[in-house]
Design a protein around this nucleic acid. Structure first.
Lengths: 333, 333
DNA sequence: GTCATATATGGTACCGGTACCAGAGAGTAT
DNA sequence: ATACTCTCTGGTACCGGTACCATATATGAC
C-alpha cells in the first residue's frame, strides 16, 4: 500500500509537506499543493490512520457497548449516539454483549487495546471491576441506562422508578388491586428500580406486601412468556399485568393470545418501553416510553465534554423523565 | 498510559522480551515470564494494538457495511458475520448506511484509513466505483445480498428470482390472477430480481404483460403502506399482494388493517423474508424465508479464505436457496 | 574435544505517520 | 541597511510496538 514517502518522492517534496496538504495544516503554496494532490490521486494514496492515531495519541473513536442489538430500544439509543458522535467528528464502534459479563470483559479489553477515546457502557451486571479497569487507564466512561450500586462514573438513564410508579398508579386508579409485575434480572438496577416504583404506588394506595406480585426473569421474549404463565397461575389471579420492558411485553402478549385471553377485556396490561412502529400491527399498549434517542445523545455529549477536558470533575448523573402513553390496553373494573 | 518500555524497565528486561511474554512467542524462561507478568499487572499495562497493527500490517478487523441495522434481517446477518469472524479471531466493525451512497462512501474511506483487513458490503446502489476503490488497495471485499451488474467481486446472496417465482406460482395455483408486487428501488438488484421471478411465473401460467402489476418503492414500512394504497386503487383490484421484503410486508399489513381489509378473507398476501418471532403476535404470513444467518457466515468465511491467500482467484458467487414457508395468509379463489 | 542444536535474551532498525525546530526568502517598518 | 514578521519547506526524532539478526549458554551427538 502507498505510503506518504512514496507520494512525497513522486511530488518531489518532503513527507511532512504531504502531511500538511492532507491535514490542511501549516503553510503550503498553491503550486506545491497541486503537485502533492496530483501525486496523491495518481498513486491512490490513503493515509494510514493507525500511524496518525499513534502519533496524535487519540483515535477519534468511541465505543458503545450494549446488551442487545436486536432490541429496537437499543438500536434507537445507538442512533442517538451515532448522530451526536458524528456531529463532533467521532466514529462509533458498536459492541453487543448479549448480557454476558464475559463478552463485556473481552470487548472492553479489545477496545482499550485499540485505544478508543471514550466508552459508553450498558453494564451486563452491577460490576465495578470492568468500570474501574477502564477508569484506571484514564479513558472516560459513561454508564448508560443502568444505575450502579456506587456512583463511580458518569451515568445517563431514565427514571425507571417514577415510570413504574406512574404506570402502577394508573392501574390502581382504574380499580385494579391484583397487579403482577414481570421484570428483568434481580441484579440489574433497571429491573429492581421498576419494582421499587411499583411498590411505592401500592403502599400509597394502602396495599400491604401481600398485594405484591413480582416475577424476576430476563429482558427477553421467552422470559416474558414464561413469567406470564406463572403470573396467571397465581391465586388470586391478577386483573392486570405490568411488563418490565418491551421484549417482556411482546412475550406476554404472545402467551396471552396463545392462552386465548383477550386484552383488555379479560386482563389489562401495561408495559415499560414503547414498541417501535415496525412491531405494531395495532398500537394499543399503554406504556411508559423512554426517550431512547435522547438518552444516546445526552450520554454521548457528556462523554465528549469529558474528552474535551473536564475529566477531573465529580461523576455526574443525568436522569431523563419517561412519558406515559395511554392507549387501549387498560380497562376499568 | 503505560508503554512496553516502562514495563521492561520495571522487570529489568528488554522491551522485546516483554513483547514475547505478551504474545507468547519465542523462548522465555519461567523466571523471566513471572517477572514480566508481575510488572505488567503492577503497572496495569495494556498493549497498544495500533502499534502492533502498524508493525504487523494487519489489524484483525473486518468491516460489515449494511443498509439498515433496524431491520431484523440484517441484524441476523450481522450475527452470522460476527460468529464466523470471531471463530477466526477477527473483530467486526458494523456500519450503517441507511441506503445512502454518500454515507457508504464516507464509511468506506474511514475503514480503508483504519486498514481493516477485509470488507463485507451491502451496496447502497449498483455502483462499481466504491468497490473498485477498495479493490485497488488490494483489500478483499465480498458483496452481500445484492447482485452487481458486473461480477467484479465475490458475492453471497439468496436466490431472489427463484423465491419470487415460487411465491408467485403458489398464488397462481390458488387461483389468483390479479397479483400486485410491491418491491424496492428499481436500481437495486434484489428488488428487480424479484420482479423477474414474478414475471417468469406469470408467463409460464400463460398470462401476458397486461396481468403484471409491479410497484417500485423502498424497502421500508412507509413505502409498503404507500404502495398498498396504490395497488388497491388499481383496476381490476388485485386479489393477492406480494410484498418484496419484510418491512414492506409490515407496512402492507398495517395499511390493510387501517383500511379494514381482512387477510386472507378479502385479500391474500405473501412476503419475502421471514419476520422475526419478536414482530409477530400471530405468525401467519406465508413467506419466502432467506437463510440470513448462514448468508452472514458464508460471506465471512469466503472473505477469510481470501485473506488467507487466494486473492488472485476469479470472483466467486454463492447463491443460497430460499425456503417457502406456508402459513395462513393465502386462500383459494 | 568439536560441532550442531535448542534455549534464552538483547540491540537496532523499522512500520507510517507527525511534532518540533531550523532555515531561507519575501515583504515591510524604521 | 537592519530588524522583524510572514510564508514556505525540510531534517530529525518520536509515537509504541515488533522483525531480524546477533550473542551466550546449556545440552547432546559423535
Amino acid at each position: 500500500m502507498t505510503t506518504i514517502r512514496q507520494v512525497a518522492k513522486l511530488a518531489g517534496v518532503a513527507p511532512i509537506t504531504v502531511s500538511r496538504v492532507i491535514n490542511n495544516t501549516g503553510y503550503i503554496s498553491a503550486e506545491t499543493r497541486q503537485k502533492v494532490e496530483a501525486a496523491v490521486s495518481q498513486l491512490g494514496y490513503v493515509p494510514n490512520s493507525l500511524s496518525q492515531s499513534l502519533r496524535w495519541k487519540q483515535t477519534g473513536m468511541l465505543a458503545l457497548v450494549l446488551t442487545d442489538v436486536t432490541n429496537p430500544f437499543w438500536t434507537t439509543v445507538a442512533r442517538g449516539v451515532e448522530d451526536a458522535a458524528s456531529e463532533a467528528g467521532y466514529h462509533v464502534i458498536l459492541c453487543n454483549t448479549d448480557e454476558s459479563p464475559q463478552k463485556q470483559e473481552e470487548y472492553l479489553t479489545a477496545l482499550l487495546q485499540k485505544r478508543v477515546d471514550g466508552v459508553l457502557l450498558v453494564p451486563a451486571r452491577d460490576d465495578l471491576e470492568d468500570i474501574q479497569r477502564v477508569q484506571m487507564l484514564k479513558v472516560p466512561l459513561v454508564v448508560l441506562d443502568r444505575r450502579l450500586s456506587q456512583p463511580l462514573a458518569d451515568a445517563v438513564r431514565c427514571d425507571s422508578e417514577s415510570g413504574a410508579y406512574q404506570l402502577t398508579r394508573l392501574l390502581l386508579e382504574r380499580g385494579h388491586r391484583q397487579i403482577a409485575l414481570l421484570t428483568g434480572p434481580e441484579h440489574v438496577a433497571t429491573a429492581t428500580d421498576r419494582v421499587t416504583g411499583y411498590r411505592r404506588a401500592l403502599r400509597e394506595a394502602g396495599l400491604d406486601s401481600d398485594a405484591e406480585s413480582v416475577f424476576y426473569g430476563a429482558f427477553t421474549i421467552q422470559s416474558g412468556q414464561d413469567m406470564v404463565r406463572q403470573a396467571l397461575a397465581a391465586q388470586p389471579r391478577p386483573t392486570a399485568i405490568f411488563a418490565g420492558n418491551n421484549f417482556i411485553a411482546i412475550g406476554m402478549m404472545q402467551a396471552l393470545r396463545a392462552a386465548g385471553i383477550r386484552v383488555p377485556e379479560e386482563i389489562s396490561v401495561v408495559g415499560f418501553d414503547d414498541l417501535p412502529a415496525s412491531l405494531l400491527l395495532d398500537p394499543f399498549l399503554t406504556v411508559a416510553a423512554q426517550p431512547a434517542y435522547e438518552m444516546g445523545r445526552e450520554a454521548t455529549n457528556l462523554l465528549i465534554k469529558r474528552l474535551a477536558g473536564d475529566g477531573a470533575q465529580a461523576p455526574q448523573e443525568v436522569v431523563l423523565p419517561v412519558e406515559i402513553v395511554e392507549r387501549k390496553s387498560v380497562i376499568k373494573r
